[in-house]
Structure formats: C-alpha cells, structure tokens
C-alpha cells in the first residue's frame, strides 16, 4: 500500500482534473458550443506565438505575487479574501507617488523605485486593517477583507472620476497615462518587463524559503495549525497573524504597483482584475504547498489569457476560464476527501 500510495495519490488528482474537464465540457454543451473547439481556442490564444506566451507571463506575474501572499496567510490559518483590495491599494499608492513626483527633478529610476515601495506599503497597510479587525476586533477576515475590497474599488473609481480625472472629463478608461520615462522598461515590441518577472519570481522564492526554512515559518505554521496550542507554547499569535497579513498585503501591493508601472501605465477601474481571488484558488489547488505555486499559477494565467479568444472566435463569454478553474479546485478538494475516506476504510 505504502509504495503504491504515491501513484495512487497522483491517479486521484488526474481523476479530479478529468472530472473538472468533463464538468466544463457539459457546461459548454449546454451553451451549445463544441468543448474541444473551445479548449483548442484557449490553447491557441495562449501559446500560438512568442507574443502570446509573453502575454501569458504578463498575467502570470501578478498571479505569482497574489499566490505567494495567499500562501503566507493560509499558513497562518487565515482566509485573506482581501488580497484583491490589497492589490488595488498598492496600485493607488503607486499612482499617488508617480503623480506627486512626475513633474519634479527627481530621476525617473528613483521615482519608479519609490513608487514600487509605496505600492508595497499601501497593500501592506490595507491588509493590516483587515488584520487588526480580525486580531483585535474579532471580525472574521473573510468579511473584513471582502468589505475592504469593495471599498478599494469604490476608491479607485472615485479617484478616476474625481481628483485624478483626465483633463476634461473622467472616463472608465482610467487616469491620464504617465510619460513613458516612468514606465518599467519592457522587452522591445512586447508587453513583458524583465523587472516585473524578476520581482514576481523572487517573491515566490522568498516566500518558499520563509515558510519552509525559517524559524518564523515554523512558528507561523504552528499558529495556523492550532492557535490555542501555539499561544500556550508562548508564541505571540496576534503578532504572527499580523505579520502574515502585512507580508501578504505587501506582495499584493507589489502586484498592483507592477500593473500600474509595467502594464497599464495608469490607474484603471479594474486594476486588480480578480487576481486576488485567483491567487487564493491557486493556494487551495496546490494544497498550500509553495513549490507548486509557479506552474499552477502559470496554467491559470494561460487559461485567463487564452479565454480572451472565446468572445471573439466563438461568441462565448470569457468567464469560462473561471468555471474551469473553479471546477478544478472543487474536484481536487472533493477527490482529496474521497481518497481520505477510502484510506480510512482500508
């Protein structure tokens, strides 16, 4: 049993993926669409050219940051649903610094550095708010974070149509774009920036090391596994929970900063694009194991980017990617339960 259990586990996960594909195919048939054609279009949309692949990487970067952050709060036993808003606040803080310094004599490199830093801090502070509500106010982080997400979106829209509106009249297309000296340099002709990629990968590596190889990570795990016991053993659980929120929020804020500096070059209403929720889904799908975050986040990014083809080619809504992602997580969770049930009986 023991030697086979690894393959057995693998088989169970393959079964979960197959079930998710079957479920999504049924949904496609209900929508009177050919499932294989839809999957083909998603793959073609994400991998048919170098440009397409780099665009998938552009989506991958914020998702890496959000997933890395989610892993930290998951480890502490927290459901940080507020990542979405923390990305948004990161983007707002970055935009703020850029707006303040754009006409000054400060060199662009320093402005960009300060803007990234500000994004990190903005995200971390927004997370600290949810964290304080949880730790000191007893407000479940799911509700605190979610409420703050809605507030963050409203703030963005208010800024775009109010104080930061374009000359003339504000519009849903966002604030006035920044001068290209304030953009993070991208590969010529492409939308991908090496700097962003570096930050994204570095963040995940740091989180991996932090969680698996440090004293802090070990204690954080103890807090996540059993808060009461950790407290009895003298771990200041509130401090650890707050630290997890701050780290996660900071990483989410970085994602927001990069969306402004390297992708959109301005603040847009949907700057967080659902990456916060998706990051949590990645965390759940990989059973909170950091080592798998990169490939799974890449796969999710490919689904997201590839599904943009669906409305154009097949007149289907691009939300299909969300259905497939959700089905994957759901069936992996359920099959995990099935496996444990059988193992218990065996």
């Amino acid at each position: 049993m023991k030697s086979g259990s690894r393959w057995y586990r693998f088989g169970i996960q393959v079964a979960a993926v197959v079930l998710a594909l079957v479920f999504t195919s049924i949904i496609l048939l209900i929508a009177k669409a050919q499932p294989l054609e839809a999957y083909k279009n998603i793959l073609v949309g994400s991998f048919s050219s170098i440009e397409a692949i780099t665009n998938v990487i552009v989506v991958w970067i914020p998702l890496l940051l959000a997933s890395a952050g989610a892993l930290v709060t998951f480890t502490a036993g927290l459901w940080n649903i507020g990542i979405e808003g923390q990305i948004t606040l990161g983007a707002i803080s970055t935009t703020l610094v850029l707006r303040l310094l754009q006409h000054s004599d400060v060199s662009p490199a320093i402005i960009i550095f300060l803007a990234v830093l500000s994004g990190f801090i903005g995200g971390a502070l927004w997370a600290a708010l949810a964290g304080a509500l949880k730790t000191y106010g007893g407000v479940n982080e799911i509700f605190g974070g979610l409420g703050l997400n809605f507030v963050a979106t409203a703030m963005t829209i208010w800024l775009i149509f109010g104080p930061w509106k374009r000359p003339g009249i504000g519009s849903m297309s966002g604030t006035e774009p920044f001068a290209n000296t304030l953009w993070l340099p991208t590969i010529p002709g492409l939308r991908l920036s090496w700097w962003s990629l570096l930050i994204g990968i570095l963040a995940l590596v740091l989180v991996y090391v932090l969680l698996s190889n440090t004293h802090f990570g070990l204690k954080l795990k103890a807090v996540g596994k059993n808060r009461k016991a950790a407290s009895v053993f003298g771990i200041p659980t509130s401090n650890f929970m707050m630290s997890a929120f701050l780290i996660c929020g900071g990483l989410a804020g970085l994602a927001g900063a990069l969306q402004v500096l390297a992708v959109y070059h301005r603040l847009i209403p949907s700057i967080s694009s659902g990456y916060g929720y998706l990051g949590l889904m990645v965390g759940m799908l990989i059973n909170y194991q950091a080592i798998w975050a990169a490939p799974v986040a890449f796969f999710f990014a490919a689904l997201n980017f590839g599904s943009i083809q669906l409305p154009i080619v097949m007149k289907l809504d691009s939300s299909l990617s969300g259905v497939l992602q959700g089905a994957l997580v759901l069936f992996v969770l359920m099959m995990d339960g099935v496996r444990k049930r059988f193992e218990k009986k065996a």
Partner: peptide, 21 residues
C-alpha cells in the same frame, strides 16, 4: 459532511464558480 473537506474552502470556490457560471 461526507468528504470532511473545509466548509470555507468549498463554499468559497463555489461562490466564485457559480458567479462565473
């Protein structure tokens, strides 16, 4: 109840998936 998975996890996935559906 039957598979003993986290209610929060399952509910959260479902809430996102139902919206996209």
């Amino acid at each position: 109840i039957t598979l003993k998975q986290s209610q929060v996890a399952v509910g959260f996935v479902l809430t996102l998936m139902c919206r996209d559906l």
